[in-house]
Design a protein around this nucleic acid. Structure first.
Lengths: 129, 129
DNA sequence: CATTTAACTTGTTTTTTGCAAGTGAGCTGG
DNA sequence: CCAGCTCACTTGCAAAAAACAAGTTAAATG
């Protein structure tokens, strides 16, 4: 897409759109796994955009798609190692947001966990239950 | 914009579009300061989009705009403390890109610096000369 | 003082997103 | 065993954003 060879631009091409990191948050922080789960995210993603993003993240090797062994019409999306390695990036954005989000509705639960025990937080979101 | 209260979503609303972090890279890694500098970035940003992004980043308090004391038709864009605090996020994305970008044109200079001395790299991009 | 430069703005086309509705395979209760 | 529901999408269209091209204004420069 962008052929500059910059590692930052490479990252942005892979997950740097309005939605990818929010889908990954659902997987990492909230343990969500299915298309239906992702459709319910608070920020309200459109169904066609969600389908696009999942396809892109799978193509890029960030997530993988498999059949749900308990329900043959459902699929499970899970993180690859490459996807798990995004945990430090998520963590840094969460810490930055925690520092600067002064809105009354700001939710601080994840921020507090990450501040109290950063390595533990990263390990936890790397391997969501 | 997104009213979820999530610190990650807050961050994405502030700098999570296709271009903001590339403009900030120019400032942090390459010491660029002017509109004309940013127009020349390798990835090719459109002039109206650049104007929009600069306005947005200024509104969000990530950068500030001042007159160039040496040239009255030019302005200097510089990082605020809030903007400087994005350095760890940039660093993590660069490290991730360095790990996974296997394209022949991948540029590894910044990656190597960040790997060799991460704190030094962060300090350097926080305070570009 | 005519030309160039810097920082944009404006207008138009193209791409992406958002929204509503629809499809088809697989489950489920009566 | 089958009508109706659920799940994971797809399709079509409108709205928003991005890309592209050209123009404007104020200030510097030769």
């Amino acid at each position: 897409m962008r052929q500059s060879g910059c590692p930052l631009a490479f990252g942005l091409d892979t997950f740097g759109d309005r939605w990818s990191l929010l889908v990954l948050r659902e997987m990492m922080v909230r343990g969500k796994k299915t298309y239906g789960d992702f459709l319910e995210i608070d920020e309200g993603i459109a169904t066609n955009v969600l389908a696009d993003r999942l396809k892109h993240l799978e193509t890029e090797g960030i997530i993988s798609k498999s059949r749900d062994p308990d329900n043959r019409r459902s699929y499970l999306y899970t993180l690859t190692d490459k996807g798990r390695d995004l945990a430090p990036i998520l963590t840094e954005i969460i810490l930055w947001g925690g520092k600067y989000d002064k809105r009354p509705q700001a939710r601080r639960e994840a921020v507090n966990k990450a501040k109290k025990n950063r390595k533990g937080f990263e390990a936890a979101i790397r391997s969501p239950e």
